[in-house]
């Protein structure tokens, strides 16, 4: 294919010399990784803070390993302690009257309220059981289904990487098309003995290369600084990312075909990519979302990329877990690509 190499080179040069493009492709999504990684890792370490008002013998007698789960501070004034709980400065206040333990909590943070009730409740059970003088017959052992290494970063990295790839491929295709059409460079290419396949091929090749670089940088940084651990057949994420790039290029070509100026093209690309990222669980999990939202989300290519990457990169599933998303992504790219070809225009007028 004549022209494939010089056109690829020209697109690549145009990309690496454009500081804004570099920023939005690499640095901007990484900023989110650092930001989210920081927020969520702090959140998982949060412990319950309990105010102990006066003497609470049950707490004093509780086993060491149980007390380790809460931070206990001794105070004397009950009213002040309740006030602190109300303001959210402490999670609960505990006082003991004879055999009765009274727990003051706030409904404002329901998760903490439940945690602290459970913890203190277990202290009471332990104390009752100790009084009975018999060894405990039943035990509870809680086991997490995922790998032990499962932390926020494990879920964040695939989603944010998916969003970053969607952004750069969609914008790359839309802006190349509109800018080249507006500057009449497309016309120059149409007047050169270069097949259309070379122009498309160059764009596809460059976008795939950029996506792989994004992937390498993302995974590299997440592993080095945030403790990301790849599981199982993580390498299946590579073909996933490549076919997803085709889908996003098709979306970008469509956006470029129906707009005239670079400004409106990037506006439209934003209008598509940002909601798609939210609906595809790039920023937070979709488990709690209503069914109709889930249905919409399953029509979006980014959802399938994210799910596929989660399966093979952090859920430890085998390579076959990637086949279904790869098929969906190829189909999506084909359908949207054909629509984009039909709407394609060489000329601005």
């Amino acid at each position: 294919m004549r022209g494939l190499v010089p056109l690829s080179r020209a697109m690549l040069l145009g990309f690496v010399r454009d500081r804004m493009a570099l920023f939005f492709t690499l640095l901007f999504p990484l900023m989110f990784l650092v930001l989210f990684g920081g927020i969520f890792s702090f959140d998982t370490q949060a412990r319950s803070e309990v105010l102990q008002v006066g003497d609470v013998p049950i707490l004093d007698r509780a086993p060491r390993e149980q007390v380790g789960e809460v931070d206990i501070t001794r105070v004397d004034d009950l009213a002040a302690a309740i006030d602190q709980v109300g303001k959210g400065d402490a999670d609960a206040a505990v006082e003991q009257h004879g055999d009765e333990l009274v727990l003051h909590f706030s409904r404002a943070d329901q998760v903490q309220a439940a945690t602290v009730q459970g913890t203190i409740g277990s202290f009471v059970s332990a104390a009752n059981q100790a009084v009975s003088g018999e060894p405990p017959r039943y035990r509870l052992r809680a086991e997490q289904v995922e790998d032990d290494s499962l932390e926020a970063i494990q879920f964040l990295t695939p989603g944010l990487l998916g969003w970053a790839i969607a952004m750069s491929a969609t914008f790359g295709a839309a802006l190349t098309l509109v800018t080249w059409r507006k500057s009449r460079l497309l016309r120059k290419l149409r007047l050169a003995p270069v097949p259309t396949a070379s122009i498309v091929g160059a764009r596809v090749g460059v976008s795939m290369l950029v996506a792989l670089v994004q992937m390498a940088v993302f995974l590299g940084l997440a592993m080095a600084f945030f403790g990301l651990r790849l599981t199982g057949s993580w390498w299946m994420a590579i073909p996933l990312v490549l076919v997803a790039t085709l889908s996003f290029l098709a979306i970008g070509l469509l956006a470029g075909a129906v707009t005239r100026t670079p400004e409106s093209a990037s506006g439209l690309a934003n209008l598509i990519v940002l909601p798609m990222a939210f609906l595809s669980g790039s920023f937070f999990p979709l488990e709690g979302a209503p069914a109709w939202l889930q249905a919409i989300s399953r029509a979006l290519p980014l959802r399938h990329l994210n799910e596929g990457m989660l399966d093979v990169m952090v859920r430890g599933l085998g390579p076959s877990a990637a086949w279904a998303p790869i098929g969906v992504l190829l189909g999506f790219g084909l359908v949207v690509g054909l629509i984009a070809v039909r709407l394609f225009r060489w000329e601005a007028d």
Binding site: S183, K188, L191
Partner: peptide
């Protein structure tokens, strides 16, 4: 196409080159 040369009204160039 290789036998003709066309110069367009607007200067059509690749970006950043």
């Amino acid at each position: 196409l290789p036998r003709i040369g066309v110069q367009l009204q607007a200067s059509a160039f690749f970006e950043q080159m």
